[in-house]
Design a protein around this nucleic acid. Structure first.
Lengths: 148, 148
DNA sequence: ACTTGACCTGTGCCTAAGACATAGGTGTAA
DNA sequence: TTACACCTATGTCTTAGGCACAGGTCAAGT
């Protein structure tokens, strides 16, 4: 099967298939007649694995490592387990980050509800944002006038 | 003040300051002696605004629009409000996505707890991942053997 | 036979927001 | 003077493909 056929078979895009082919995660033969890439069952298998792993948010580099391991004939499962644990931790962080951001945004919207719009004053661009100086900044600016 | 001083004053990196300078969000004068970039109070003000907005996850492009509006002397606040509402919606999505992914990963880990590691069999790379065929795929593959 | 349209090819540029490297100029204290 | 810390500009790298382009290929319709 050729690029688009393979892509459709696994519900992805031709560009994706080409990309994985280019970086060597899946291999294709070249048709002698026309130079088109030709994929076999094994390539489809591999691509399916890749796509499944991507669904778990594995990076292409991680998937690559796993495939290399597997290609050496070793069990890839330990690496897969390790990777997925790592991603669970990462996801937890993202989750918490999204939570904090949501909180922050909601709070801003609420706080601003009653505040009017103001034209920029030259020393302030938008008082809504600049009003809030809840800094994560722990290095407070010290400013010596330094006209050179 | 010069790049690194400004960066430190606002608790960011010199590279970040240079970046915003390069794309024109903040402006710097060039010292006549040595060509070093020199920033004034207004630049610091602007950078502070930019960093605050970035904390709210505003994109640089969005911030740019806001600054342009403000530079025209218009009130930027409506745009800021609109942008932040947009981001709240986005964050909600990310939040849900992280939630789903966390669920998926946790479930995978649990499901695999008792399963052994297996060497790749030639038709399967890692049974842990390939075992799960819970497809979002709605186009089931139909495969005609197509030896060219 | 010819054309049309849908497919394919390779190549290369684009994304976001900086981080990092490199080569060379500058400033200051020992 | 020299060492060291700082500065400059420029360019390359990052993710996982998306998109555009110029041209070759194939099946069907005219």
């Amino acid at each position: 099967m050729k690029v688009t056929e393979l892509a459709r078979a696994l519900n992805t895009t031709p560009d994706t298939v080409r990309y994985y082919t280019k970086i060597g995660l899946v291999t294709a033969l070249k048709s002698v007649n026309n130079g088109y890439k030709v994929y076999n069952k094994q390539a489809q298998q591999r691509l399916k694995f890749i796509l499944s792993a991507r669904q778990l948010d594995f990076s292409v580099a991680e998937i690559s490592s796993i495939l290399v391991e597997s290609d050496k004939g070793h069990a890839a499962c330990p690496l897969v387990r390790k990777t997925i644990e790592y991603h669970l931790a990462q996801t937890e962080k993202q989750f918490q980050a999204a939570l904090r951001l949501r909180e922050k945004l909601s709070r801003a919207i609420n706080d601003w509800q009653d505040k009017p719009d103001k034209a920029p004053t030259g020393h302030m661009i938008c008082h809504l944002i600049e009003g809030e100086s809840e800094g994560e900044s722990e290095g407070d600016a010290q400013q010596g006038e330094n006209n050179e």
